[in-house]
Design a protein around this nucleic acid. Sequence first.
DNA 1: ATCAATCTTGACGCCCCCGTCATCTTTGTC
DNA 2: GACAAAGATGACGGGGGCGTCAAGATTGAT
Lengths: 207, 207
Amino acid sequence: MTDVAMDSGRRARTKASNRAAILLAAREVFAELGYDAAGVRDVIRGTQLASGTFYNYFADKEAVFRAVLDESAQEVRRRLRAVRASAQTLEEFVGDAYRAWFSFLVEDQLMFKLMQRNAGPIRSLFGDPILGAGVDELLDDLRAAIARGDLAPLDADYMAGAMAGAALELGVRMAEREPADVEGAARFATQLFLGGIDRLAAGAQGA
Amino acid sequence: MTDVAMDSGRRARTKASNRAAILLAAREVFAELGYDAAGVRDVIRGTQLASGTFYNYFADKEAVFRAVLDESAQEVRRRLRAVRASAQTLEEFVGDAYRAWFSFLVEDQLMFKLMQRNAGPIRSLFGDPILGAGVDELLDDLRAAIARGDLAPLDADYMAGAMAGAALELGVRMAEREPADVEGAARFATQLFLGGIDRLAAGAQGA
DNA sequence: ATCAATCTTGACGCCCCCGTCATCTTTGTC
DNA sequence: GACAAAGATGACGGGGGCGTCAAGATTGAT
């Protein structure tokens, strides 16, 4: 052997590329047919591989599905974290997050389609999280902002839900426009929530 | 025969009750397993009937599914229409609609579960509408209000989307609280959107 | 060049669901 | 009570997806 853990052999390279091919095909198939309707065969049909080979890479359909979602979820969270961390004002915090989210939807429409089509399966395979962990992080950020005094003491749980729900439906409509209206949708969402936060804050202190 | 179209015979009664039993079982099964995973057999297992009997009432799985959704959708729309028609102010319009929506979710949790679980199939079987026709009516109302001058000229499409998306996710969180927080969630949503509308209106005229 | 280890292949057996249909049961009529 | 029409039943044949595995192909080390 040339050395340990050298992933440069032909062996290792095809292994990686096969895995990638399966993941890509799976993403397309799940987005197109939906998790339940899609079969392992539909996935491999999208590659050059034989049916048996699939099982050298993943235990079953659920395993690929999880892997596919992990990829996307990580990327989304990475971007949103970056944007939120560098926000200086509340307006930046809200606006940049929406802008990043909408941009991502436009870039990776396959993932968006996948999320919409498989909301049910995602909810039942993982806990609740469709936008899942992403919403959890938003919730944490909101709570932290309230604790710091940067944000009025509103119901962070409801707020995170409303922002996430609006993000999904606005995303659909944003992507339908020609050309995709990332900036317009981001501005709309920003004004909507900043205005809403103001009013909720006013009500909270008055009560 | 006693007479025409008399639905009082034993015959007609069992027919109606069988149909109802199938619809109820279908609602439960679809909510529990999801449209794709559920089979016609799962549905009849929830009744006293034999497998063949199913096909005397519905052509196939898709047909029952459509029937189940129709029932619920009609009820939701009926309630929302009633509430909106009698609204005098913007605050009533928004607040009462959310209150009606959240109440309905609490009363008919089975339908809510069904909606969440089968968002994908619903989207692909019908056009887009998960909350579908309901959102269309909201959109119409918003446009009408803008035309009348009761509402500032904001993007009605985005607004309807944001309100609907928030309605879904707020609904989830509202129902999770113990006891279900219909009033709190309705107030939250109302303040959020009234505040948002104010700010969007201010921006619109300034631009 | 040889050979063992590793990976790929696709046919196979298994299981489950679907929609039908010949048969039996119930209903309504006279 | 007898008979015809309407309806319920569940066994059956067909189709399709799943995961396995024996046989063949590739790789990498000597």
